[in-house]
């Protein structure tokens, strides 16, 4: 059975499935769901930031106004970033996760 022993038992969780802490979605690793991984090609990137604007998960990492890669703990592989990346750049490739498992 896949019981996670490090998680709290039924006596120690808030009633009714309430979440009492604000902003803790960050702790939830949606990256586990991903079947395709966005791979960023730095040399093709125009730094237009469209990928960052469109990503529904805030998973495009930006430092000092520039894209630096992806937060793979939270990127769930929807591919919106790759779709929105201007064709002239095509700097994001969606690669099946199975390629990385090899």
């Amino acid at each position: 059975m896949s019981v996670k022993p490090d998680m709290p038992g039924w006596k120690d969780i808030p009633r009714g499935g309430l979440i009492l802490e604000a902003g803790n979605a960050f702790q939830y690793r949606t990256g586990d769901w991903r079947s395709r991984r966005p791979v960023w090609q730095k040399d093709r990137c125009k730094q237009c930031l469209l990928c960052w604007i469109f990503c529904p998960d805030g998973a495009v990492k930006v430092e000092e106004g520039r894209v630096v890669g992806f937060d793979y703990d939270h990127c769930k592989g929807c591919g919106i970033c790759a779709t929105e990346c201007p064709p002239a750049a095509s700097a994001i490739e969606m690669v099946p996760e199975s390629e990385f498992a090899k």
């Binding site: 998680m7 709290p8 039924w10 009714g16 499935g17 309430l18 979440i19």
Partner: peptide, 14 residues
């Protein structure tokens, strides 16, 4: 937060 998702790892406990 009310009505959040609880999957295989926590629904049973609720």
């Amino acid at each position: 937060t009310v009505g959040a998702l609880a999957l295989q790892d926590s629904f049973f406990e609720f």
